[in-house]
Amino acid sequence: MNKMLRYSSLTKKYVMALAGFFLMIFLLIHLGINLFIIPFTENHQDIFRDGVHFMTTNPLIKAMEIFLFGGFLIHILIGIILQIRNWMARPIRYAKANNSQGSFFSKYMIYTGAVILIFLIIHLGNFYFVKLGLTEAPEGMTRVADDHDFYSMAINLFSNKIYSGIYIVLFILLGFHLNHAFQSAFQSLGLSHSKYTPFIKAVGDFYSIVVPLGFILIPLYFIIYY
């Protein structure tokens, strides 16, 4: 921890950006599997269960899990360290709030990040801790081979409209977080170019809309059809 504090501000930014990129790739894979909760095809349940089975039993993925948790932990810890340092850099605030133009969502990264963290803990409690056996699966949930029945557990959660509502709001906030994060990570790594930066920003806008929207489709489906 002390070592982490001693790293230069720029090194922290690089690590923050790299961990962020890693988490953004993970989010895409997660979405790819989650979307099969919605009955696009007749065998969507089987595809979802196969996906979960692969993600929970494949040795390579299990090894990657360590990196994933490491990525989350580093991203959160460095985010908090940087934020505290940033607050300390201006001990006396302005009386008149700063109205300078700039990236809008960037001003709220710590807050959107904090909300995402709270959801992440709830999400782990609902699924990952069940898999580890730390928390009990909801009643009536079956086991398929070695896996807990994540499909039934997801259906069980999304049939609760309050949970679905919170889930939708959370993913809108995640969209705000990602909108700044995507292009910011490139800038932090020094990847700025007059020709390519507008394209990177466009991809970031696309990613930050499409990925959260994909996740939101699932509770929306349950709200509309159940």
Partner: peptide, 26 residues
Amino acid sequence: GNCTNTYACEAVCPKGISVTNIARMN
């Protein structure tokens, strides 16, 4: 403090210094 890429600096710079300088420094 640390840069969080808000780009408020570029918006107020009286000489129009661009944040591409920050990327270059990175």
